[in-house]
């Protein structure tokens, strides 16, 4: 009797299994469709998610990050170009993730990779990266990214140089950064800042070869700064700009025109800044810049 009944139960299970399989595939297909049509995902604002995380902020950040990765992965897989709304979602997600765990490096890399090149939202990217700079105080890459964005996308040389100099001061940064920063600072019209920066770098630096290079750059920058100072005085006294740099020597503002250690010739740009034909690059130099 009992054997009979369990036989019927087995039969019932066997009959129900295909129905379950059908519904299972149907449900998954529905979900896939739904995810494609969804314009943006749902996001809990950071002041709530920090509380709701119940002490698992890092883990929640990881999870959110995986979600945003899959979201944009889906988009590119389906060849759907992200909309402005999607980019808003992206920015807000990264904002939440970095609020949950501001030391988490991956979201910053993703920001630099997507939000600038693909979305063209440089200021927003910089704002996010700036948060990273505040927390990852020993990571030269984040200020370097901001500097690069300023320099390359925004053409804001002054700000760009400032960030790259900041990056160069951090441990582990590649040796070409200081010279790059100094040059950028020069073009940004801030020779004096660059001089100070290099002096500090030199004071902290123990590497011979780097020191030699930095000293050369420092010398060039000091001279450029000297000329700029003289130009400033001239302008102040005479209420006009010089026509040629030699005018500074003839009117007594400089004893002699200093030599560019890189071997270039000094000139004045239309906006009154000093430049050198060498662009402060050593002839044999092969640094990536």
């Amino acid at each position: 009797m009992a054997g009979q009944r369990s036989k019927w139960l087995w039969l019932l299970i066997v009959l129900l299994l295909p129905v379950y399989a059908q519904l299972h595939t149907g449900s998954w297909a529905q979900r896939a469709e739904l995810r494609q049509s969804q314009s943006v995902g749902f996001l809990v604002p950071s002041q709530f998610s920090r509380v709701l995380a119940c002490g698992y902020k890092g883990l929640l950040a990881d999870y959110q990050f995986l979600r945003i990765l899959t979201f944009f992965g889906d988009r590119s897989l389906n060849q759907q170009p992200p909309t402005a709304e999607d980019w808003d979602y992206f920015r807000d997600s990264i904002d939440v993730i970095t609020d949950l765990d501001p030391w988490f490096y991956d979201p910053y890399v993703l920001t630099e990779g997507l939000l600038t090149w693909d979305a063209g939202r440089i200021e927003e990217a910089n704002a996010l990266l700036a948060k990273g700079v505040r927390y990852r105080t020993n990571d030269w890459r984040l200020p370097y990214y901001i500097g690069f964005n300023n320099f390359f996308f925004l053409k804001d040389h002054a700000a760009g140089a400032e960030y790259i100099m900041k990056a160069a001061r951090l441990p582990g940064s590649p040796s070409y950064l200081p010279t790059l920063a100094a040059r950028l600072a020069y073009y940004g019209g801030k020779s004096q800042t660059a001089v100070l920066f290099l002096k500090q770098m030199l004071a902290e630096n123990s590497d011979e070869r780097l020191a030699r290079r930095l000293q050369l750059r420092l010398l060039a920058l000091e001279r450029a700064a000297q000329i700029e100072d003289a130009l400033q005085c001239f302008r102040h006294d005479q209420q006009r700009d010089v026509v040629k740099l030699s005018e500074l020597v003839s009117s007594g503002y400089l004893e002699s025109l200093p030599e560019d250690p890189y071997g270039g010739r000094w000139g004045i740009l239309k906006n009154g800044r000093v430049f050198s034909t060498s662009k402060f690059v050593e002839k044999k130099k092969t640094d990536v810049e």
């Binding site: 995986l66 991956d106 890399v109």
Partner: peptide
């Protein structure tokens, strides 16, 4: 699945 901060994710 993660790009760089694997150490962090693992510890998390």
């Amino acid at each position: 699945f993660f790009m760089r901060d694997l150490g962090k994710v693992t510890v998390d």
